[in-house]
Nucleic acid binder design. Sequence first.
DNA 1: AATCCGTGGAC
DNA 2: TGTCCAAGGAT
Length: 298
Amino acid sequence: MPDTQVPSDVVSALPEWYRSTARDLPWRRPEFHDEFGAWGVLVSEFMLQQTPVVRVIPHLDAWLKRWPTPARMASASAADVVQQWANLGYPRRALWLHRAAVEITDRHGGVVPRGVDDLLALSGIGDYTARAVAVFAYGDRHPVVDTNTRRVLARAVEGRAQPGAPSRRDLDLMASLLPDDIDAAAMFNAAAMELGATVCTSRSPRCELCPLAGSCAWLAAGRPDTGDERRRQAAYEGSDRQARGAVLRLLRTLDPEPVPLAAVLPDWPDAGQRDRAIDSLIADGLAEADGSALFLPR
DNA sequence: AATCCGTGGAC
DNA sequence: TGTCCAAGGAT
């Protein structure tokens, strides 16, 4: 466990701030849990993996109304899932979510597992999502560390501008800060994420609104640029990802109609890149080909 | 451990 | 206008 001195108001001021200012998000409402249970939380967490909250919200309800249980989703085709995923981005997540639904149906009797290890064993679920489901769906006591929490800890406790690579130390530190009370611990996890999402933001932190301003190590040091910035995302324009996105958008638009291979982005600037995109989509299970045409996976 | 994987809003 | 970045995970 890190021996860093943790300011007391990280523990005391954060919950009060959360109670008074937290956003009213769908997955935080009691009705959401009544209607969709842990499956609803799991689906929301999949969608929230690298897709902003405001873009997830419009898709979540339709998804859960269509597939209200893991078993219902397990019986859908991959094509239906990719289609419903629409423009949420990183469509492999739709495939992983579908796979997880099958695994839950087969291995857990259709009930979203509660244990972190069982959750970690599901497709598309890593350290963050496993603990988020255990905590936010089942109310158990675990540290939940996403990119927001990691940034809050990096600044308030370590005095660095940006978090370094994710590590187990973040989980250990968060675990050391959690209140003993189970419900309070769950709220503390949510509060740290909320602070990072709305106040302690990556680009323009609003320190004047921060409940931790009185003890933040980074603010006290004058908000130094500590030089440990996040690695820059590769350019999207002209990238392989852009090509894959364009191909898959075409398949989605024409689905269920197969697209003759000759009609797949014939005017794409780089034909080799386009062909590699098609091959990689097939390799990922996001597309299928019958030799003359391309289509979403049946 | 570094890289790859979509999409779109904000600045 | 281009850059940054968003409730990550897999390889």
